Computed example of a mutant assay.
Amino acid sequence: MDLQIDQKFVDEIRSRMEPSCVLLNEPMREHTTFHIGGPADVLIFPTSMEDVSFVFQCLKKHGIPFVILGNGSNVLVLDKGIRGAVIKFNSLFSAIEKKGNILKAGAGALLSDIAKFAAEKGLSGMEFACGIPGSIGGAVFMNAGAYDGEMKQVVSLVRAISPEGKTVHFAADHLEFGYRHSIFQENGCAICEVELTLVPGAVQDIEEKMAGFTKRRESKQPLEMPSAGSTFKRPEGYYAGTLIEQTGLKGFTVGGAQISEKHAGFVVNTGSATAADVLELIRQVQQCVFDKHQVKLFPEVRVLGEKD
């Protein structure tokens, strides 16, 4: 497809960043855990907070819309792709450091790596996140959680870049954490570094707890198939997966999208799913569950990209 972005912007970004960090017309299916999505006009991988500040200033200067991504594990990119820029934090922005009981992690650091690092250092508090397939930046953005743990329990400080390119700090009490919510869903800032305040613990106890969570996750969730993780938010008083299973929809398919036969709370890509398949499947599941249980299900997955 033709590039739908200002070439002057591309040239300006490339004047500062490595060629491998600025990709044009890049298929987003290669950068999401769902393995679904059309091309982004430009995909940028920052390596420092200075990079992020520079990119944001260029975006504002040229009037270009943007999307920020972590590991791409909780998103569905539409089939037409994403117009404008995608800023993706990956392994180039993933350093993890320890100072006392505090870990500092770059936004692209994977939760599994942080949990493992914390365990090795005898720090407890991140065990719940050991199997969540996301980055710390995305986890803070969504206040990710599992097994009665949430990011809000451990995050003490976030360093971010504002849409104007300024460095801003957010203490824990200013993050507006709620169920799958943080202030970053409204303020447009890019999460760059996260500080986690943990508590000392015995390495063996921490590792045993993580091993238990991993065993539970592997036995119940369709980790062997591409997905965006849990598809629906938990309705108050219910579990989405249980409602869907009780509605008889386990294994239900639309095109290449399927309600997992292993866990009904997951929509999986059987190999050829389009975003349109996933959205239609979600729509039909919502309707069927409401007809049977009078409970409304709302997607947890973020939908990004150009609509028809």
Rank of each mutant, 00 (worst) to 15 (best):
M1F: 07
L3T: 15
Q7D: 14
V10T: 08
D11Q: 11
I13C: 03
R16W: 01
C21P: 00
P27Q: 11
M28S: 03
A40M: 03
E50L: 01
F54A: 05
Q57L: 10
Q57W: 00
K60P: 02
K61P: 01
H62M: 06
G63S: 06
N71H: 12
G72W: 01
I87N: 01
F89D: 06
S94M: 13
N101S: 12
A105V: 10
G106E: 04
G108V: 04
L110N: 12
L111V: 10
S112M: 13
S112R: 15
I114H: 09
A115N: 11
A115P: 06
E120H: 15
G122Y: 02
G131W: 04
F141S: 14
M142W: 06
A144W: 04
D148F: 14
M151Y: 09
V154Q: 11
V155H: 06
V158Y: 00
A160Y: 00
S162Y: 01
S162H: 01
V168T: 06
A172G: 05
H174M: 06
S182C: 14
E186Y: 03
C189T: 05
A190Q: 02
E195L: 09
L196C: 10
G201N: 09
V203T: 12
K209A: 06
M210G: 04
A211T: 12
G212A: 11
R217F: 06
K220P: 04
Q221P: 07
M225H: 14
A228K: 06
S230C: 15
G237N: 07
Y238P: 02
Y239L: 15
T242I: 15
G248Q: 09
G248I: 13
G248R: 10
F252D: 10
A257D: 13
E261K: 08
K262P: 02
F266E: 07
V268L: 01
T270P: 03
G271A: 05
S272A: 10
T274V: 06
A275V: 09
A276F: 00
D277G: 08
D277T: 13
V278P: 00
E280M: 10
R283Y: 03
V285C: 06
V295Q: 03
R302C: 08
